[in-house]
Amino acid sequence: MSLHVPTDLHAHTRFSDGRATPEELVDARRAARIAVIAIADHDVMTAVRAGALAAQRAAMILVPATEVTAFVHFGTPRAEQVHVLAYYPPDLLRGRGLEQRALFARGLDVARRWKEFVLAWLDALAPDDRRALDPEVRLAAEPPASFPALQTLIDLVVARRPALFEPLRRHHVRFWDEDRARFGWSPFEAIDAIRADGAIDVVAHPARYRDQDETARVLGYATGVEVHSLHHTAADAARLLAFAEAHDKLWTASTDDHQLAAYAPPPSGTPARALERILRRPLPRELLLRALRG
């Protein structure tokens, strides 16, 4: 029987479509006695440094990560997003190693593009609506890294102009659906890009996708499988675990928490061996002892 370490390797902050600050996210996991965590915002790594600092103070390990958006059947009526998690070794946080990675630079570009996309939407609104959402005309001057990300923008719209929520909701998907250059990667291309960037690829919430045949092919190619996720039933998790073990895949225990409800940790930990592959180093002895004690 393998040793499992309490983990949550997939969660979002207010820098994508979550509600928590990086510090709040870390604190919820600290209270739940999670030992190894990752902040995996969609396509950006803005929260990683702040999260790593908070995790260090709480004697936890943070794995630098991002959730890369890819598509199957891009540009067709069957188009569907498939997400692949990229995990980098924590050693990159010493120095600027992380900032040198291609997917980090891609994240900066995505944040810049998001700001342009939102400002274009705001500019197309009636002047009264535009003023209501940005009365001090400050958004255009906001740096991309601190520009309201998706959930923060939604909350702002709901608070100041509720009638614009549905128009925004319908419009925002175009950010991904119409940008083949940034998001039109197939899952296989995304996995290749992650590997070329020195990270480990794990397919996020595989049971969630509509095209399960294509998902099976992607899983066959991927390094790892996210077994535990809030999107998965116990039966999903059991099926994915069996797949991972039969095909010698690395597997992980996570939540994909967006702070929609009180934090509940995954029902199981991640195998220590899988975690050591992600971390690219042996687990600390104290952590293994803690896992042994359960």
Partner: peptide
Amino acid sequence: QIGTATFNGRFGPYVAP
């Protein structure tokens, strides 16, 4: 938990604690 509220996310409105 102290009640419930309707929140708004990218997939639409939802009721949550």
